[in-house]
Design a protein around this nucleic acid. Structure first.
Length: 291
DNA sequence: AGGATGTCACAGACATCCCT
DNA sequence: AGGGATGTCTGTGACATCCT
């Protein structure tokens, strides 16, 4: 875990006072604010991939304008690391104005906390999916982050995120995300998998969702291997899939990066979505976590 | 016309690497 | 250990182009 970032004090332009800068809000500004409201913190490159075709200089420039307007806040961990952006109260009000309510984080974050790396990694998964799904004509139909799920009510099992993807053929599949920063013990990981198994045979499912797959994404490929090795072959009905965060970032949904507890073979997210339902598949029909 | 957008060049600050 | 070279990330201004 890196150090907690500090708010950045930026120099004002030498020639153009903030009050004279443009204040025209664009549709993209609205989408940026909504993303910040939902994901709490995003890095420059995450915003660049989402809204600026990967251009960080363009991102910096526009986010600087939003900062001048008091809609976003900028945080610097240190000068050699990327900036972090969060929404301000004023920005949150803008989002509420345009969405007509709140369908995002409970309130603007006061500042990054000790879970920042974990949160940024979860957001990295979300950004990677959001950016790569349109290439295969798929879409994220909904996404509930851990804090959204906690707001629903107490639960013995809260994944890092629960989300659903609709594929180009109209089929929709749900996923529970477990993102690990190599901080969790193997024992803790196995306990969580047992809870997933218990949810699988319960009547209520996980937050009302049945028939989902569990995606375990690790920052360190070495730890992904450790988690994978710790599970018995076919544990949790084989509905657990493993991948490294960097691979997902590089290859998106198209990449064959997902493995099971036993497999050497790698599959794309699209492929693993269809496996449990296929009649020929790899014999995993009974492995799907289901209610 | 005026604002938004994107690119480029440049400079400042810090981290890291490598050489002495 | 110390110092220089290099790399990374940022902010900024200038400019061209696109859009409203």
């Amino acid at each position: 875990m890196g150090e907690i970032p500090k708010p950045l004090r930026r120099r004002q332009s030498r020639f153009l006072p903030a009050s004279k800068r443009s204040r025209r809000a664009t549709a993209r500004d609205g989408r940026i604010l909504l993303a910040l409201a939902k994901m709490r913190f995003l890095t420059t490159s995450q915003l660049a991939r989402l809204y600026f075709g990967g251009s960080r200089s363009a991102t910096n420039k526009r986010l600087r304008t939003l900062m001048d307007q008091g809609l976003v806040r900028v945080w610097a961990r240190n000068l050699s690391e990327e900036n972090l952006y969060s929404i301000t109260r004023a920005g949150d009000r803008e989002v509420q104005k345009t969405t007509g309510g709140r369908d995002h984080a409970p309130s603007p974050p006061r500042g990054p906390d000790g879970n920042l790396d974990h949160l940024l990694a979860i957001n990295e998964v979300r950004v990677s999916l959001a950016v790569s799904l349109p290439r295969v004509r798929g879409m994220l139909t909904w996404w509930r982050s851990e804090w959204d799920l906690r707001a629903v009510g107490p639960s013995r099992l809260i994944p890092d995120a629960l989300f659903s993807i609709r594929w180009e053929d109209g089929q929709e599949h749900s996923f529970a995300l477990e993102l690990d920063n190599a901080t969790k013990s193997i024992g803790g990981f196995l306990k969580k998998m047992l809870r997933y198994e218990a949810v699988g045979i319960s009547q209520s499912g996980l937050f009302g969702i049945f028939g989902f797959l569990i995606l375990v994404v690790g920052r360190e490929p070495r730890w992904v291997e450790r988690y994978r090795d710790s599970l018995d072959e076919g544990a949790c009905g084989g509905a657990v899939w493993f991948a490294a965060l960097d691979d997902l970032k590089k290859e998106g949904v198209e990449g064959s990066i997902w493995t099971t507890t036993e497999g050497v073979k790698r599959y794309s997210l699209r492929e693993i979505s269809s496996l449990p339902y296929s009649t020929e598949g790899i014999g995993r029909e009974t492995c799907l976590i289901s209610g």
